[in-house]
Simulated assay, not measured.
Amino acid sequence: MTALTTLTALCPPPTAAPPAPDWSEVENTLGTRLPQDYKQLVTTYGPGQFCDFLTLYQPHAPSEWADLTGPMPARLRTQIEEVRQAARRPWPLPHRPEDLLAMGVTGNGDYLFWVTQPSGAPDHWTIAVNEALRAPWFTYNGTVTEFLVDVLSATVRIPMFPPDLLDGGITFTPAQLHSTAPTTAPRASVSTHAIREWARANGYDLPDRGRIPIEILKAWEQANPQ
């Protein structure tokens, strides 16, 4: 049984996924081949969110913050080192920034990256997750489809993911039904730590970890317009 078969049994995909991207064109744009499991995953599910929390980047997505072929992956790669050096005590990185290709984001501003080594063997790439480009980092030794299976079946616990992630059930919501998608994740240039500090200063009761409620994200965005 493949990981995709297990995933679709665990979390049924939409009955009608959008047309598959032109993968040759996508890979030419990125300058690299992509893992076969990711291409099958996108073709099966299309754009959307798992458990109203986890969004995979898609080729040519309409929103820049979730566009695999847009500027966001390169921007995040640059910001990793900028954020680290700006810290009072820079933390060690488990992977070189140039080996990281952003491919997902969560509602808390956690980022998912492929560790693109070996560079010529994308089907052997592993997954790295971190919290708003800061420490801690979590490395998963498997494909993104296997990662989703283990996260959604609670086989693997990702430290920066909220403990109540699966309390609402294991779901996939297609993007066209998710009108609030651009506001469910903090803007890439702002850390969740900054949002939590703002929330506490404005009377919100918010723990150090866990999902930031949508109402707080919306209140922060209204108070801090771009």
Rank of each mutant, 00 (worst) to 15 (best):
N108Y: 03
P174R: 13
D167M: 12
E131K: 15
P186G: 08
R134V: 01
D123K: 12
D164H: 15
R157Y: 06
G107K: 00
S119K: 12
E146F: 07
N130P: 03
A128M: 15
D150H: 13
F113Q: 01
A175C: 06
T126G: 10
A132W: 08
M103P: 07
T143W: 07
W114K: 01
V115P: 02
T173E: 12
T139V: 15
T183K: 11
F147L: 13
L112A: 14
L165E: 02
G169W: 00
T171C: 10
L101M: 11
G169N: 02
E146N: 13
P174I: 00
H124G: 11
W137A: 14
W125L: 11
G104Q: 05
F147P: 02
V190P: 05
D150T: 11
P159R: 08
A121M: 12
T139I: 13
P136N: 08
F161D: 02
L100A: 02
D123Q: 12
V190W: 06
Y140Q: 12
N141R: 14
D110W: 04
N141L: 12
P174G: 08
Q176K: 14
R187E: 00
T116P: 07
L148F: 00
V144I: 14
F138T: 07
Y111L: 14
T184K: 14
V129T: 05
A181N: 03
W125G: 07
R187P: 01
G142T: 04
D167P: 10
M160I: 10
T143C: 11
A132R: 11
L133A: 02
G120S: 12
S179I: 09
G169E: 03
P136E: 02
T116A: 15
